[in-house]
Design a protein around this nucleic acid. Sequence first.
RNA 1: GCUCUUGUAGCUCAGGGGUAGAGCACUUCCUUGGUAAGGAAGAGGUCACGGGUUCAAAUCCCGUCAAGAGCUCCA
Length: 628
Amino acid sequence: MPDSTENHRKTLDERNQMSDLERLRHSTAHVLATAICRIWPDAQFAAGPPVENGFYYDVDMEHRISSDDFEKIEEEMKKVVKENQPFERMVVSRGEAMEMAKKGRLAAETERSTPSQFKIDLLNDIPEDEEISIFKNGDFWDLCAGPHVGRTGNCKAYKLMSVASAFYKGDAANPQLQRVYGTAFKNKTELAEHLERLEEAKQRDHRKIGKELDLFHIDEAVGQGLILWKPNGSVIRQELQNFISEHLERQGYSQVFTPHIGKLDLYRTSGHFPYYADSQFPPIPEREAMKVLSDEGCSCGELSNKLESGEVAGFMLKPMNCPHHIKIFQSNHHSYRDLPVRLAEFGTVYRWEQSGELGGMTRVRGFTQDDAHLFCTEDQVKEEIMGCLELVKIVLGTLGMDDYRVRVGLRDPDSTKYVGDSEKWDRAEQALREAATTLGTDFAEEPGEAAFYGPKIDFVVKDVIGREWQLGTVQVDYNLPERFGLEYVGADNATHRPVMIHRAPFGSMERFVGVLIEHFAGKFPTWLSPEQVRILPISEKFVDAADVVYETLRKEGIRVKVDKADEKVGAKIRLAQLDRIPYMLIIGAKEQESNQVSIRHRDRGDEGAMPVDEFTNRIVDEVRSRSL
RNA sequence: GCUCUUGUAGCUCAGGGGUAGAGCACUUCCUUGGUAAGGAAGAGGUCACGGGUUCAAAUCCCGUCAAGAGCUCCA
């Protein structure tokens, strides 16, 4: 189990490499602690490190901090900053440090009746050979390896952001502490810019825009994490599926359909049941079995045990599509001449995510993967992976998501958890590496990041405001071919085991569309827009003329509507803008006479008049080429 | 799953122990207009659900469900 950032104790070397900003944030965390300590002297502090966009300090005390307290705390922090206390480093012996902690003197301004309990614990975690240091700012002494900025006066631009609870040391078995989050920057300008970015992110939130544009709905009566795609959202999804399907065709894939459930035995073979039972919907026992068991007065617990042990048969909602695709592959005999076999499906899967993990479209319990499984010979692995990478590249390029990084997940050389012999792994890793090189993008090799069944390549996309999302993935798999005993007949007339490749350029339709909404801030390129054109007659008199244009566009497959409301154009434009419709066509007396339309683009504004046919050609072209 | 916060009209939200409010959206009428909001009237709610306290609960308390933030998790 790799250390999470949370648990990982920074080495002194790593600490010395802390950037200036991290130093500043860490120091601001001490300022925060000083302030809290002055207001609530019973406060016990745990850890207070810098984090990605700021810092936090974990605190345990009687009073429950709420955002209403922020003003008061910030006021007190201001005083500490104004006092411009120097941060002084003092090296002490383990015994001295322990003595201070026992007197409650650590993370405090005075000795206290209760010991600094968390600091005692942290002290015990410090390796024997490491120097123990205390950092002082004014009377506030804290066990801390540093480093810090020179004085509290350097911490001028900060803001408390939120308070939440966190498990002590990140372990769910430990008690929860109050974690106060803040952010800090070199100066107030940078702080303001950061806050602006956060505001921008809020405006782009796919849950907000999804509601505004009527894209999707989650209903309590249906269930948590289950997405209802509304007509507008469905247009986007369908367009994306058409887009992918076109490329699947070109790349020689076969599209298939499979049911949403499968027998428990199928997943016993694949190894997913009962090993991953906690993250799956509970199994569906067979009708007959249910009846017999209920007649016998069998409890739920017993039933569940019998399902797990295989005494009782049943079905499961599929948590992945692989087993179904494998069974399609296995339904024929295969010669090496047939390979590679590429089976693709927009396959819906169900996983039991913990309720607290769910959120909007990005973390759900039922989702549709743009999934495919490739069955090929060892020799074909590299080329097939290149094909997969090509597809991901086309997808991301078409959507203007050019800012991404590529991770090549390799096995951990020291671990033995991996299936398949190491020679095969060497070859597969080399194939992945070479394929990644052909991408022309930098990639990072990450040992230990491979799945137990094979190495993989992940695409991590950065959206317009700098957040990262793991989307596309390509994985080599030696495990399932083994478990299911897949075979093909080679040129030598002997049977061989094919290699499987899993790949999903979007990851899932739900997550991808969620990310796309935020990426485009709802302003989808024309080909993806649920409504591509809205015709705005200047008054009722021009509704007929509008209808004629409507028919022309509709015949060309353009998604168009006429706004016949009894409103002025100004109001109609406003609504169309709010709906993020790419083109507004305005029709009044001038246009009617000349058989033209006045074009207004949602971003470019008034583009003047143009004959209807010319506009039609232009937009049809724009849609067909899927331009941004 | 854990901690905290929240749940009032289709949407965004105010109010808060004495029978429900605004703006937008919706319907009707007036208006027939030129690039981001013309005017008027009307309709619309079991204040998430269940229980308790009270003469009286949308309001206070408990529970359930759901959402948000963070933690833990994501084959």
